[in-house]
Design a protein around this nucleic acid. Structure first.
Lengths: 229, 229
DNA sequence: AACAGTTTAAAACGCATGTTTGAAAAGTCA
DNA sequence: TGACTTTTCAAACATGCGTTTTAAACTGTT
């Protein structure tokens, strides 16, 4: 009773989650070995099965832990920014930081990217508990900028265009490194990237907005467009 | 004896490459098992080591095979399209088809996506022998549309924005399926996607073209640089 | 038919991995 | 302290894997 409760014991589980996150992100579920994980966590080989049942149990636990950490560190404030264009900028910049910033445990979004490409049950949970809500946020911003009617399918396409530009730097990071070694990913570089993506997208969205009130049933052709303004 | 009449000779290597492509794309290098591959190829377990030395050798052979097939089926014609905007459209549409069309062995770009996320020596070869050249093509198109000076870093950013929009539907395909089940990926859907991405990007690029290639920060002046209509 | 070179087949080897076990250690509470 | 639970540990187990080995089957040539 004179002992501080819970300090050492709960530490093992946390060390396991952190180490497992690293290893799963680096190697993938299958290639990651329990012995590698427990070596980094300075734990015994039986610890995984004791605390999480089996390797799969550890994996899903890591996934929930990752989502929790990510939400704590980068809370999505849908109302940040006064104008829709500012909201777009804030959204893009925070998403970029979230998936590329090297500050905190850097493996969260590498795990996410793996799940996106090779979906397991963890992806369904992720979609329903995070991604759907965040996609609705960017869709709302797009709707405000373009003034498209609320369920116009072009809103979904435009939101995907914005997100695609951002995710490119996560999913194709290895290619970018080889193709353009001068591109760095420090905080200031990320902010510069965010400005570009915001400008690029804003111009596209505003062009749609300008087309919008003219004709409710406009013909869209992709040929050489007339200059506007 | 009493064996059924045997294989068309030397087809074994091809069957191995096809099966290995499937399995590597589905499971990744580590999780793919030789026994799974040779079962699909109706070959013996020793065939891999006989023809390709070891598992790694088979993997690199599959990669070269994939690139060869891809180039044969979707040759890049840099000059397709008369105007820069049409060139953009052709580029986007052919890239979309290449990474998502279900016609031919569908695992090529799934493999590529895996390599992008978890690079090995195969990625270096791929970057030097395909990607660099194709990125130069889209960069040239962007340069023509924006009229930016040839080495302006914004060209690289804009080209990445275009490619990012396309690759999104490969790398995040599983998320798209869960988020928007109505989005399909038949040939006509891909063409519609291509039109959207082209329009979106063209609007953004033309907005840049209208701005003076001066200060990165802030004020844009409608200069006297009104080129063609 | 007989030979030599190439390809395929079945079985086994060695090793790494996920998991289990049984006991020791640490912690908890009377 | 002493009973009881929770956690840690070292060792072993069982299995699946990549690889090797040895021999059989097939090919083409003489």
């Amino acid at each position: 009773m004179a002992v501080p409760p819970h300090h050492p014991p709960a530490a093992t589980e946390n060390r396991l989650l952190e180490s497992a996150g690293e290893v799963f992100a680096e190697k993938g579920f299958r290639a990651a070995t329990i012995r590698d994980i427990i070596r980094r966590a300075k734990a015994n080989v039986a610890a995984v099965n004791y605390h999480y049942g089996d390797k799969q149990g550890l994996y899903t636990a890591v996934f929930r832990y990752a989502r929790k950490c990510c939400e704590e560190q980068f809370p999505v404030d849908a109302d940040a920014g006064s104008t829709p264009l500012e909201q777009l900028h804030v959204f893009v910049r925070s998403l970029l930081r979230r998936i590329l910033d090297h500050g905190r445990p850097a493996w969260h979004w590498q795990l996410m990217a793996r799940e996106m490409m090779e979906p397991s049950a963890a992806l369904d949970e992720m979609v329903e508990q995070s991604i759907r809500r965040e996609f609705a946020i960017i869709a709302g911003i797009v709707e405000n900028i373009t003034r498209l009617p609320p369920h116009d399918p072009r809103i979904r396409l435009c939101a995907s265009s914005v997100i695609g530009q951002v995710l490119f730097y996560r999913h194709a990071q290895a290619v970018v490194h080889r193709l353009h070694p001068e591109q760095e990913f420090a905080r200031k570089d990320l902010d510069a990237l965010a400005i570009h993506i915001t400008d690029f997208s804003a111009a596209a969205l505003e062009a749609i907005a300008k087309r919008q009130p003219a004709k409710p049933n406009g013909r869209r052709r992709n040929g050489p467009r007339e200059k506007n303004a």
